[in-house]
Structures are given as C-alpha cells and as structure tokens.
C-alpha cells in the first residue's frame, strides 16, 4: 500500500511533466484541428457527396454532426495520430537521457523497471487524451455546424443520442488500445538512443512499414500479426448489436506487442550504461 502510493506520486509527477510541456498541448490542439477542418470543409462546399465517395462516414457528416468524430478518427489513424504517438513514445527514455535528467532520476533512486512502467503508462494516458480529443472536438464542431440526432448504424438500426455518445467513447477507447503496441515499440526504441528525434522517426517509419506490408496481398499470412492490422476495424462497434470480435483480436495482438517490446525495453534498459 505504502509502495503503491509512492508510485502514484511518481505517476502523477510524470503526467504533470508531460502536461506542463507546451509540445503536448500543441499536439492535442493539432489533433483537435482535424475534425474542425474536416467539418469546415464539408460545410463550406455545397456539393453533396454521393454515398461511399470520400472516406467512410464522410457523406453522413452533413446529416448528422456526430459522425464528424468517427470520420476524423479514420482520417487521423494512418499518419497523424501515430505521428504524435511516436513523438511521445520516442521521448520517454531518450528525452530524459538527452536532457540529462535520466541520471538524476536513476540516482534518486527511481528504480529502472519502475521508471519504464510509469513512462509507458504516461504515454498510454497521452494516447487516451489524443483519441478522446478527436472525438470530443468532433462532437463539438459537428453539433455547431450540422444537425445532430439519433445515429443510423452501419447495420441500419438507429440508436439514441446517449447510446451514440457511448459508442463514440468505445471507439476512442478502441483506438487507444490500437496504439498500445506502437507505444511499446516506441518505448523500446527510446531505450536504444539518447537522441529522442531518432527514436520518434524510427517509430513512425515502423508504423509506415507495417501499414505497407498490410497492403501487400502476397503477405496475407503476415497481416494478422501486424500491429496496424486492426486499426481501422472499429466499424464493428457501430453495428447493432455491438460486435466485439475485432476488439478482442486487436486487444490480444496489442497485448502481445506490449509484452514482447516491454520485455525488450526492460532487458535493454536494466543493463544499460547511462553515459549522458
């Protein structure tokens, strides 16, 4: 209990450091801009899109503003969201090393495993903030520019406003879970270097590579093992009744990545000479 509360104060301190940084807020602001730009673009162009044209849900945005959040999430998933995620994950250890604060944390003493765990949880909290920012900014701008009402699901059923807000939260949560794998990969890469930008770039590159491989039909045997594979599969959450099959396979896959890269990060970091 005592030890737990002490780790709590490190966890809070970690979040305080993250959310004192202007960079964190700038990234969240940029993320909020995606649904806003999307809604403005839709509102300002008079042209009606034919159903199915443009990204999924886009045609629905004008009829129901609540779809702004879903559409923005789809748009942000391939590149923009992973980019901000990579910045935060790549910074974890390498950022502290490049500032030199890592040596002072370690001699505090923080405990290397404890630091890794707290750093990782901190990045997951950022992912949660990012995905909910997408949704919430989407709801707000969507309700300003468009009518809102009961949502017609992909299955044709209608759900109430309250139910749709709940589904949106589930989608945001699904997307957060989707990010846990890449966060673990970023954490591991971050233990390999003292140059945070290098770790961030490498993490982004891996995300790109994974998505490219996922698009090569010749490698179909590999697809279900790629950490980006289920990223866009949150459509199942928008069916009635809600289908959690892809949620479960995604969660399991991400858990695997977290276990493997978490272990790699620990085995690297626990024996590393801190020379910065």
């Amino acid at each position: 209990m005592f030890a737990k509360s002490l780790s709590m104060s490190l966890m809070l301190s970690e979040l305080r450091v993250m959310f004192t940084r202007r960079r964190t807020w700038a990234m969240l602001a940029a993320i909020a801009l995606i649904p806003i730009l999307l809604a403005l673009a839709v509102a300002l162009t008079a042209e009606e899109l034919a159903p199915g044209e443009g990204p999924p849900f886009l045609s629905q945005v004008t009829q129901n503003g609540l779809f702004t959040g879903f559409t923005a999430t789809l748009l942000a998933l391939p590149l923009f969201l992973p980019l901000t995620i990579a910045v935060v994950a790549g910074d974890t250890i390498a950022g502290e090393a490049s500032l030199g604060t890592l040596r002072y944390l370690l001699i505090a003493p923080v405990g290397r495993l404890r630091l890794l765990v707290v750093k990782y949880i901190g990045t997951v909290v950022f992912a949660l903030a990012a995905t909910f920012t997408l949704m919430i900014a989407g709801i707000i701008i969507g309700s300003i520019l468009f009518p809102i009402g009961p949502v017609t699901l992909l299955s044709g059923d209608q759900i109430s406003l309250a139910e749709s807000v709940w589904r949106m939260a589930v989608v945001a949560f699904y997307t957060t879970v989707s990010m846990t794998g890449i966060l673990a990969i970023g954490l591991f890469i971050s233990t390999l270097t003292t140059v945070p930008v290098g770790a961030m770039a490498a993490t982004v590159v891996l995300t790109g590579v994974s998505q490219i491989l996922d698009n090569l039909p010749q490698l179909s045997w590999l697809h279900e093992w790629l950490f980006t594979h289920y990223w866009l599969d949150f459509a199942d959450i928008l069916r009635q009744p809600i289908e959690l099959g892809s949620f479960a396979s995604n969660a399991l896959l991400q858990l695997g990545y977290v276990a493997v890269f978490g272990a790699l990060a620990y085995s690297r970091f626990s024996t590393k000479d801190i020379l910065s």
Binding site: L6, L12, S13
Partner: peptide
C-alpha cells in the same frame, strides 16, 4: 554528476519536486 540537468520548461522548485517524487524512499 557531470553538471546539473533539469527540465527547462519547469520551475526550479517543480524540478526538485519531480526528482524527489522519483525517489521511492522519500
């Protein structure tokens, strides 16, 4: 060790609070 190192975007006091929170025995 090898000169001081701190988070430049935090106050001196908050920096010390941060490092002390990291100390699991404090």
């Amino acid at each position: 060790v090898e000169g001081p190192a701190f988070y430049p975007y935090m106050s001196g006091r908050n920096n010390l609070i941060r490092i002390d929170s990291a100390d699991r025995f404090s």
